Simulated scan of single mutants.
Amino acid sequence: MVPWAGAALWMLNPLLVVWLTLAAAFLLTLLLQLVPPRWLPSCALFQDLIRYGKTKCGAPPRPAICRSFDVPKRYFSHFYVISVLWNGFLLWCLTQCLFLGAPFPDWLYTLLRILGAVQFRERVEGENKVASVHVRIAGGELALSAFLVLVFLWLHSLRRLFECLYVSVFSNAVIHIAQYCFGLVYYVLVGLTVLSQVPMDGRNVYVVGKNLLMQTRWFHILGMMMFIWSSVHQYKCHVILGNLRKNKAGVIIHCNHRIPFGDWFDYVSSPNYLAELMIYVSMAVTLGFHNVTWWLVVTYVFFSQALAAFLSHKFYKSKFASYPKHRKAFLPFLF
């Protein structure tokens, strides 16, 4: 690791603070759910904010004021519409920079600087000759890594939008308006987080050489394979869930909950959440394993998905007496 990297690694820029705060908040929330209920005072609003969909059925009775803030769970599709449009725009801007040499728009460049985007030219000029070589190489790898991760994020959002529209069968389940607003902001923030990892040279992207593909490293290939593998399994899980409410002809016949079987459902109650985590891990691999900001994103995803999986697992166990006892909530054989 180059000398400046160690210091920069732990510098708390705004994105680090945001993702660290979110990860800590969901870790605390998960731990509170593991505590016996009698040890904690009941708070209907708190439970309402952390549960959505079917898991609201297992929560304490909901006051009328809480129900007034409900929106349909099928509005999940709005998250992915925003993500496809916004992250598609960011991907277009990055593509223009990488392949056509066009600079970022002023407002986007300013925003990225506020969020902690690195100016590699300043780094290189401040290093000795040996270290600057490592910086330039790292800059080339980071440019390709960020490009691939942004492509992954856009493809992931596009697939999830397709699943929301054509695969999933939504019941009359609801989410809180606060959760809905958070979901809209989330994918905007994730896209900016990826783009802020791009090494900057003024308003342009810092790239070594003219051929970006020459910066390909083994972890780019590994990350791509992990992304495809995780995405395929998540799609399979959503198909299994959707088919529980359809007949063999593909016609929706009910909106009740049933026990899913097949694929990763043989091991955990919420394999779609596990696959979501693995998708983000694949992006961390693509970024070269050592990107602290993205590992904080992964940490947030881990705790948020673990919380949702834990609540979903409790719902299944309470609703179905014959629910498989060997099946864990989130991590096979562990949790």
Results as ranks from 00 to 15, higher is better:
92 W>N: 06
20 L>T: 14
196 S>L: 02
211 N>W: 05
271 P>N: 04
202 G>P: 14
55 T>Q: 01
159 R>V: 07
104 F>C: 10
57 C>P: 02
13 N>S: 08
135 V>C: 11
125 E>S: 07
186 Y>T: 01
99 F>H: 13
282 S>W: 02
243 N>D: 15
130 V>R: 07
16 L>E: 07
246 K>F: 12
174 V>G: 01
15 L>P: 01
305 Q>T: 12
160 R>Q: 13
334 L>I: 14
304 S>Q: 09
293 T>G: 08
19 W>R: 03
308 A>I: 06
192 L>Y: 08
269 S>V: 07
93 C>M: 12
259 I>V: 07
141 E>F: 08
83 S>T: 13
289 F>V: 03
135 V>N: 06
325 K>G: 10
92 W>C: 04
115 L>R: 07
38 R>Q: 15
63 P>F: 08
177 I>E: 12
155 L>I: 11
42 S>A: 14
331 L>H: 05
281 V>R: 00
51 R>F: 01
176 H>E: 11
323 Y>K: 05
238 H>R: 05
146 A>L: 00
77 S>P: 02
292 V>R: 12
52 Y>Q: 04
185 V>P: 02
335 F>A: 10
49 L>W: 11
118 V>N: 03
148 L>N: 10
105 P>G: 05
304 S>Y: 03
209 G>L: 03
268 V>I: 13
32 L>I: 08
113 R>I: 09
132 S>D: 10
21 T>C: 01
144 L>S: 10
80 Y>V: 00
208 V>T: 14
275 A>Q: 07
254 H>M: 13
257 H>P: 06
310 F>P: 01
21 T>M: 00
193 T>F: 05
152 F>Q: 10
283 M>R: 02
223 G>T: 05
111 L>K: 03
249 A>F: 11
314 K>F: 04
196 S>V: 04
241 L>H: 08
318 S>E: 15
188 V>R: 00
199 P>F: 01
117 A>D: 10
61 P>I: 05
1 M>D: 12
86 W>I: 02
182 F>W: 13
279 I>F: 03
151 V>G: 05
34 L>Q: 09
188 V>A: 05
261 F>V: 07
228 I>H: 04
221 I>L: 15
79 F>A: 03
123 R>I: 09
231 S>W: 01
52 Y>G: 02
243 N>C: 09
199 P>S: 12
323 Y>Q: 09
127 E>P: 00
330 F>G: 05
189 L>A: 12
112 L>I: 05
123 R>N: 09
74 R>V: 13
224 M>F: 13
123 R>A: 08
266 D>W: 05
131 A>Y: 06
277 L>G: 10
192 L>C: 07
147 F>Q: 01
50 I>T: 04
105 P>R: 00
170 F>R: 02
123 R>T: 08
127 E>K: 00
224 M>G: 10
160 R>I: 13
309 A>L: 01
322 S>T: 15
